[in-house]
Design a protein around this nucleic acid. Structure first.
Lengths: 128, 128
DNA sequence: CCGGATCCGATGTGATACTG
DNA sequence: CAGTATCACATCGGATCCGG
């Protein structure tokens, strides 16, 4: 948690768009993962999620907050504004199931991609 | 499996739209569940999934087939056409994780709905 | 620093009608 | 029986610009 999140955390792994299993919207699973080991600031989350615009990140965070999976803590000080997001107990309880499906995807992503390629190739042949 | 699928199988339970966890598109998880105990014909699937139009059901089945999760078997006979869908080994391997997330939803759906209601009520107050 | 406002294309979902 | 064709609509994700 003390360490900042690496910028390439989701660059290669976790191709959410490719997985048949989704948690919340496009970015929700990554957000939960980022919060698994402690609270994070908005700008901290933007590092690994650098391909998402602020607006969309806000929308995802709001949706997770609405579901009671994360909580938002805002503190105003002379140094400026500080907003932190953290998992609620409910959000933490979702980490287990989330890891189960992530494990499944990691284990079978090759079969999945091969099946798609094969299917698309067969369709291509039929169209041609 | 020999028994037909009950028409109200998904009427109350499994409010997929309410769950933050999704498998494939809107109907994919229900389809996999229907196929868990054996192959089913297109028209058999339409019984529990009576709120989905043929076009959308076809699209869902195609998507699952593309991912290699189900297989499509077509046989033509004098009695007419017969198309059956069944889980592939890959599809069967997904049943475990699927049940894990379904269990989580069953266990926490009340907290989830309460959180949403509370959040929306607070937002309502702010707007007013 | 942490967003909101606005616009827009892509995608998902569905009703209705029709077909090999 | 097992789908297709067409049209319509809502939501999602993103680009861009703006604000406290």
């Amino acid at each position: 948690m003390r360490e900042p999140l690496p910028p390439d955390l989701f660059d290669e792994v976790c191709p959410t768009a490719l997985s048949p299993v989704r948690v919340g919207d496009k970015w929700a699973a990554m957000i939960l993962t980022c919060l698994a080991d402690g609270p994070r600031r908005f700008s901290e989350l933007r590092v690994p999620l650098r391909r998402v615009t602020p607006k969309v990140l806000t929308a995802s965070l709001r949706a997770l907050e609405r579901d009671g999976l994360i909580a938002r803590d805002e503190t105003r000080a002379a140094s400026g504004r500080r907003v932190e997001y953290r998992l609620t107990p409910l959000g933490e309880s979702l980490l287990g199931p989330l890891e189960v499906v992530c494990g499944w995807v990691r284990e079978h992503i090759d079969e999945l991609l091969a099946a798609r390629e094969s299917f698309d190739a067969a369709r291509e042949r039929r169209t041609a």
